[in-house]
Design a binder for these strands. Sequence first.
DNA 1: CCCCGTTTAAACAATT
DNA 2: TAATTGTTTAAACGGG
Length: 512
Amino acid sequence: MVNNEAFVCAITPQQMQQILQQQVLSPQQLQLLLQQQQALMLQQQQLQEFYKKQQEDLHLQLLQQRHAGKPSKEVTQIMAQQMAIQQQLLSIQQQHLLNLQRQGLLSVPSALTSTLAQGLIPAELQQLWKETADARQEEKRRGDKSPSPPKTQILNHHSSTNGHHVHRPSRRDSSQESRSQGAHPLYSHGVCKWPGCDAVFGDFQSFLKHLNSEHALDDKSTAQCRVQMQVVQQLELQLAKDKERLQAMMAHLHVKSTEPKPAPQPVNLVSNLTLAKATIPKTSPSMSLSQSATAPSTPLTSLPQMPSVIIPTSLHSMGPIRKRYSDKYNIAMDQDIVQNKEFYLSAEVRPPFTYAALIRQAILESPEKQLTLNEIYNWFTRTFVYFRRNAATWKNAVRHNLSLHKCFVRVENVKGAVWTVDELEFQKRRPQKITGSPLVKNIQSSLGQNPTLSSLQAAMVDSSLPLYGSASMGASSLKALASALHEDMSSHDHDEGSHSDSSLELSPVPTL
DNA sequence: CCCCGTTTAAACAATT
DNA sequence: TAATTGTTTAAACGGG
């Protein structure tokens, strides 16, 4: 909704016409695209709705659980289902992307991208669709007797040329008619597949007529087209995000399958590799890890089927089999949390950071750079599903750390006390050894990769990377990061394989 | 082997 | 009184 206006002002219909005429999108491509996107959108929306519902359930359960102590079976089950749904979504988005790739439509006019990059959540998209559809219906009701221009406020009335239904023998039309009838992407099973239309036609000719009259190149169609482009863009963004998450998950679960690896993303450079290093267990519970790891990851490999419900029996009960980021990764850690926020939010994985680092992160994320103990707790549970269980244990640890480390300063307040971070003290905690080979470009690319920089993320970046934000840290930190990156690079330069995601299949939508 | 940082557990005091 | 918050000690573990 917030984005609505920004989006509305983003392009004028003239620009859209330009875009269309420049054949950045040819009519055929566009139509095919529209149709496919719509179908997939529907699928996605269903999934996402269910996902949302479940999350609410989960939240309730967790609230109860907080009082009851032990987590219930339902909770873990729901979590598992959520993972499954995530993967479904990923598949759908993958399909989207493939469609786009096939049509050579991956590049969206740059005028769009900046505003689109903010992204819309599906609900908003749905709303957009609804609005344009409604506007359309309304106009239909009025019929032809009132030739008033479209009422959608979002549009500038720029053209009076097609206020009436004039058949324009344009390039577009001729190319349309040259298509074979059965293959028209906007006509399927006797129904007009224009977004929000669904008009029924007995034969193809009347459909074509309808298409030329109802969906001519006017403000409304342009707007709808614009929405569709936004949909596509949003899906691409979503796909990118989910891909990233998948990567992190696979790295974490240590999947050594024949699955070709996704492109190495600078964002995940540190986190993935560190995670990979960290997940080689030596002690007995390793079996349970790899066992449980196979379940969620199976659908990602070549197996087409995925279980609708995964029970991660032992996914979380692994105790101390994990490694932390060594402290020289402190700076990179900020990146990891940001980039894998969703990952930690959907997988019950212990974040590879020390309590102290996490607490600091929590505090630095707050607008005032100060939190009460309870707020710190909340940050933990909010940010990591892992910390929604065994509350007594980690809360104790949090308190312990707060007291133990000099870097955490308690500040008396009017109402109680808050905790703050003495950044100097935090950095001082250990000498950062440096073997610097500057890899600033990596830092840059990872930062540039952040299309939706929330205030939270901005704060984190700001506080952790002096190059791009406040100059709160010295050059030593940067060098430490550089060396960290360098280490990971050199120790993993061999597994940089080619990648292709085409093996991902569109899983059937589960009957939920 | 020791040192150090971290985690976990637990006892305990103070505060709400 | 019970829960929360804060401090402290101790043991275990792993990396350097």
